[in-house]
Amino acid sequence: MAAPVVEVQNVSKQYHRDKVEIRVLSNLSLSIPEGGFVALMGPSGSGKTTLLNLIAGIDRPDSGQVIVAGTAVHSLGESQLAKWRTRHIGFIFQFYNLLPVLTAYGNVELPLLLTKLSSKERREHVETALNLVGLGDRMKHYPRQLSGGQEQRVAIARAIVTDPTVIVADEPTGDLDKQSATEILDLLGRLNTEFGKTIVMVTHDPRAAERAKVVRHLDKGELN
């Protein structure tokens, strides 16, 4: 059994909407080993995305600990957290969230601008990532010139270009047709099996969840 790369220990999280307190996660614990592929399922409002955000270091728990790649994420300051995310997290969004003014190349290169890599090294990394997702011939295309599936593949290339420790995907097939969804899931499967990437994926789609090694269900902020 590989050592856990993600450890969520007794985490609770609540939000305030107007004067209403909404408890999203309740004393939740989760451990994901290195090279794991976990699908988080559950109804809307069950806390899936909140849990994903805590693992990705874009939100903080009210209590408990989130340790990813040996770092207590919850204890980092904003600036440290930003640097940490660049190094350890690759994020894939449901709606791709590519910058429309940049080409596929420019979008994939974005996280690398925060590193000390030279222009030549960045080019090598970007080309590798885009070739990996099968879009080596679409580097100069803008998002509006790509299909939804292609956009999501560019987003995946952006997520993996820094060779992150963990890839977090928030409903990566939620906005795609069946064919494109299959291609994306195939790609995520390859990243996990061939490249050993740890993946945490939120999904509503049982077929997507089938690709994961472990499926966890959340309901009312608790893991079943």
Binding site: I58, S79, R85, N97, L99, L114, R158
Partner: peptide, 14 residues
């Protein structure tokens, strides 16, 4: 705002 949030997710800071 959402694009800035994406950039922050990628590691861009304030």
């Amino acid at each position: 705002i959402s694009e800035y949030a994406v950039l922050k997710t990628l590691g861009f800071n304030g």
